[in-house]
Simulated scan of single mutants.
Amino acid sequence: MNMNITPPGLAHSGKARRRNRPETVEVGLSYAGDASQAVAEATANLSPPAACFMLVFVPDHLDPRDVAAEFASQLPQTTIFGCSTAGQITSQGYENSALFVIAFPKKHFRCSSALFKPLKPISIEKTANQARTLSTRFRPTANWKRVALVFADGLSKQEDLLVSALEAGLGNVPVFGGSAGHGLAFDETFVLHGGEAHTNAGLLLLLETDLDFCGLGFDHFVPTSTRMVVTRAVPEERLVLEINGAPAAREYARCVGRSIDELSPKIFAENPVLVRNGNSWHVRAIQQVEEGGGLWFLSAIDDGLVLTLGQGTEILSMLDSGLGQASTSGREPDFILGFDCFLRKLEIELNGLVDDASQILKKHNVLGFNTYGEQHLGVHVNQTFVGVAFYPPVSGGGLD
């Protein structure tokens, strides 16, 4: 079970307060099945001229290419970023069919961006240099702070290398983000940049803000005594062929007390494997069974890697307490930009806990999407909630 909070360095305190809606960003959504109508509805009550940029999270029933084209047509002067998703986290909690838009105002945010395409194959040195150049050319504003957001093709299998390269290039700028999804289809994912939807691409947003913020990341698993060793793998494909010298799917099924035929996203979500990194444990989520009896993973794997079977704790209490860690010095976040793994949402759905989880997300003002993987301070992880909590502005803050 990981609980990582990046200290916000808050210099101001005030009376704790809860809001139904954030005061520093605007939100809009639509459930329309047509991209043109969905974009029009989702942005109808927003203020495009006041926006530094908009983040757009696309549901799986809309084609991201159509959505990107409609934003370019309907709001040609507005900068749009975003991605396809495996679910959305709106002001109502978990959703599956909402085109969700968050408008970040110029008053509190500045940004610069870079698109890495093609993402596969990735050059770590070139990517780090591009990030370093972006940061250098993005002139700082006095007394404002920086945070980086990354959105990547969730099927590229390059996120581990991408986030490591970005961290190297950006130095002390913290990096958070999520991998784009497409429901549970695992066929094609997109990031939105420059009026288009791109596959096999990664998107870096370098944000500058006068708002205090802190990063957070947590899961709800603890290690058990069951160990497994990867004895044959194809690392570049995140494919494990053998565990403990036996066919991977068969051996994993044995370890969790199931047959191969019973293996499913539900079983993978409830029985993750963990990898130890110092004093922390990170989930290496299994995506699905390969036709030949191997296992496709959603994070980096390699020959000789020791996997530890994880055991879940109470997911809702961990969600509430994990999000509650963002309340610091008597201040509640104005909103939390959240990147929540689709496997966490799947577990919640299969256990009939969506309404309860949504109430917790609403209480903590979480806005974001469900991912195929999460980026947390230079590490690509799975089955984890990663977020950035932004705090209300202090008196006199913002740019006029």
Rank of each mutant, 00 (worst) to 15 (best):
L75A: 05
V283M: 13
D34A: 07
G397V: 04
L239I: 11
G368Q: 04
G169M: 10
K363S: 08
F190R: 02
D303T: 13
L399P: 08
C341V: 07
A168P: 00
A50N: 14
A285I: 02
L295G: 07
F53N: 11
D356R: 13
S164G: 12
T308K: 07
A357R: 02
W144I: 08
G338C: 07
E347T: 07
L367N: 12
N143R: 13
D153I: 09
G181F: 01
Q74M: 08
R254T: 15
Q383W: 01
P76T: 08
L211Y: 04
G169E: 05
L204D: 14
V354S: 02
P393I: 09
K362I: 13
F335R: 02
F104T: 05
K266Q: 14
F104E: 10
R284Q: 14
R276M: 15
I122V: 13
L216E: 05
N20D: 15
L399D: 11
Y31R: 14
W296R: 11
S91F: 07
E270M: 10
T78P: 02
W281A: 05
F138M: 03
P265K: 14
T24F: 03
I5E: 06
F116N: 14
A269L: 00
F176Y: 15
V283G: 11
T141H: 09
K126H: 10
T371K: 03
C214M: 07
S299K: 10
F109W: 15
L149R: 01
A114S: 15
E196P: 01
V379L: 14
F213S: 08
G257A: 05
R227F: 12
H364Q: 10
A269E: 06
I315E: 10
W296G: 01
T141W: 01
Q311P: 01
G278Q: 06
P22H: 05
R19D: 10
M1G: 06
E208T: 02
A201V: 09
L192F: 09
G310R: 00
E270V: 05
E41W: 06
N20W: 12
V275S: 02
I315N: 04
L361D: 01
F268Q: 02
F339E: 14
N143P: 03
M228A: 14
T308R: 10
A51T: 02
N96K: 08
F218I: 10
H364I: 06
G352H: 15
R227Y: 09
L29N: 03
M1I: 00
M3G: 08
S84R: 09
L29E: 09
P8M: 12
L134M: 13
S299I: 11
S321Q: 01
A249D: 05
P393R: 04
H61Q: 00
E26K: 04
A269T: 01
F342I: 04
N244R: 11
A285C: 12
R17W: 09
E125A: 12
F335V: 04
G322K: 02
G396L: 07
D302L: 01
S179R: 01
K106S: 10
Q288M: 04
L75S: 08
R250K: 15
D153G: 13
A40R: 13
P105G: 06
T43G: 01
A142F: 03
T136Y: 02
E26W: 07
H108Q: 03
Q158D: 06
L361C: 10
Q288P: 03
S264N: 13
A249T: 00
A131L: 11
A35D: 04
T24R: 06
Y252N: 14
K126M: 07
R284S: 08
L162Q: 12
S321D: 10
D210F: 11
N271H: 15
A72L: 05
